[in-house]
Design a protein around this nucleic acid. Structure first.
Length: 245
RNA sequence: UGUGCUAACAGAGG
């Protein structure tokens, strides 16, 4: 059972669903019934590849077999819907989840935050964020980074930095994703110089900017028409052992 | 007797 689930999960993760189904068949033939883990692996795989109809079908099948979807199952399906821009369905799934006595956890909220973020619905993100804190869940670096990214996307880097400061005050350590979101935001606002200073700052605290960080910064100077500096940054990127992709 | 081993969330360009 665990062995089969491990293999099935491996196939689901890479989108090889025919092999996953073949293994489920084998699993059944050897006397093991698919369990929550099996269905969750399928739902998570289908969600990841934006095959939402299939994912929902598996969810129904799971319920039909008397198995209870857990927090991981719901979160996978919710995340899939968020990533496909079906935020309203994701929200109703979260309601359904709660009605069935399955409490949304931090990952569930983070998936929804990401949905709001990508749809530029940052005020709703903030509202839910506060609601989550009221419920006693502690936001982590992913929660804050998603919020910051959302604010940057709507061009409100000032608020993004306010959230950043709040995060630090709450003893939540920003990581490279957090800084990269801010750097990207600054660059898109035409503040590539500020972004570059920020890159220097993160290097000082021992973080290594990666190709995502550099590409945002390079794009920032490209937007300003400063191609010479953009090319200089590519050189610096290579010197810093970061390969352009 | 032993409940261990497997699943979900964030950043760039196009």
């Amino acid at each position: 059972q665990v062995t089969y689930n491990t293999l099935i999960n491996g196939y689901c993760k890479v989108g090889n669903f025919s092999n996953a189904k073949r293994l489920i068949q084998l699993m059944r033939e050897s006397g093991c019934a698919p369990d929550e883990w099996t269905y969750t692996a399928l739902i998570s795989g289908f969600s990841k590849f934006c095959m939402l109809e299939e994912a929902s079908k598996v969810m129904d099948e799971m319920l039909g077999n008397g198995l209870n979807p857990n927090q991981v199952t719901y979160t996978a399906l919710i995340d899939g819907h968020c990533k496909s821009g079906k935020l309203e369905i994701a929200l109703s799934l979260m309601e359904r989840m709660e009605r069935y006595g399955c409490i949304p956890n931090l990952q569930t909220y983070n998936a929804i935050f990401n949905g709001f973020c990508k749809e530029n619905r940052v005020s709703e993100l903030e509202k839910l964020f506060n609601k989550m804190v009221e419920k006693g869940l502690k936001p982590n670096v992913i929660s804050y980074t998603t919020w910051i990214d959302g604010l940057c996307r709507i061009g409100d880097t000032d608020s993004a930095f306010r959230v950043f400061n709040e995060m630090v005050k709450q003893q939540c350590l920003p990581n490279l994703h957090t800084y990269s979101a801010l750097i990207h935001g600054l660059c898109q606002e035409g503040k590539a110089e500020e972004a570059e200073m920020m890159v220097k700052k993160i290097e000082e605290i021992g973080l290594n900017p990666d190709e995502v960080t550099y590409t945002s910064l390079i794009d920032g100077f490209v937007l300003l028409g400063q191609m010479d500096h953009a090319l200089q940054l590519v050189k610096r990127m290579i010197d810093a052992n970061c390969k352009p992709n």
